[in-house]
Design a binder for these strands. Sequence first.
DNA 1: AGCATTTGACCTCG
DNA 2: CGAGGTCAAATGCT
Length: 344
Amino acid sequence: MEGCSSWEQRTLINELTQGMELAKQLRFHVDSPSSTESQKFLLQRIMGSYEKALMILNWNGSVGQQPQRQPSDPAAGLAESSLSGEGSPPSHHQDQSGVSKKRKVTPIRIQQVRVSSENGTEGAIDDGYSWRKYGQKDILGAKHPRSYYRCTYKNTQNCWATKQVQRSDDDCTIFEITYKGEHTCKQIPSTGTGTALAPASIEKQEELEGSDYPNIHLPQPYGDMLLNYRASLTVNTEEIDSKAMTSPFTFPSTSFGWMERETQIFPSLVSPAGSETNYFSAPPSQKNSSFGVRHNFQHSESDLTEMISTNNTPTNSPLVDLDFPIDPADLDTNFPFDTPGFFT
DNA sequence: AGCATTTGACCTCG
DNA sequence: CGAGGTCAAATGCT
């Protein structure tokens, strides 16, 4: 694997070098009256470079081998799940062949979702997948029970993603969601297929359970996200603060296999205070201006590990900008950071 | 009838 | 042995 590590090192150096070069260019642009577009572009690339470099560092520091698994490989999915996919029965008994051949690296991500609704706190939070509750447990020292969910398509599509939802003790409007495993299911929008940006295609189920929240079938959370940002809802992923700081705009587009889906975790909120109807009522024109929600989608170490592993297709192109997915157009479309009032 | 949730029992791990 | 996690029968809902 020394090949790998040398590759990492080269990539790391390339990232940092490029970041420096780009910074120089940016400095030049700052001095001269150039277009803000190019400045933004440079800025994005710089951030991308450093972001990637940091990921590499993190990777080396914490992980020995990466799970380079294809989610599409059913066998792999099964193996993973049985190893510890959901911490179930066969969790002990790892291969006694000295080294565990398939170190299961279940991506675990903790998210804090704040649901601020005037009235209740009971609402529906959706992350784009459909979940089925399979258990609830009172947790020692916690006021509220913890709910256990698994992917609805566990059986039909061998999707072993699970999540745990626990309401915060202090703030009842905050839910801590722990995601385990990655979705191998394909929850394709059967309705309209319209990339979800059409609010009309988004229909949430308005049943508001007494317990935590039901989960909506929302295959394309992006539209959801856009609409929900105005719903005064805060998503806050825990861990890796340092990484978070360096990456306010995490991986906007492709290139990170499962990340593609995992980053789309934009919980939705249905305000129970009779506001279900206006839940999706945000006029399209307001979407951009109501991005008042922090967008720090951070990822745990294991996540980063996975990210890198999936990204680890050494294109051998040290020029990062080719495979690093910061596309200004993309950013422009999805994250209007240049909107003056964005950080308000 | 089919599917989702509830809930007590069971299992595993520290 | 206790806490956390999962199973599965019972129950509810559409």
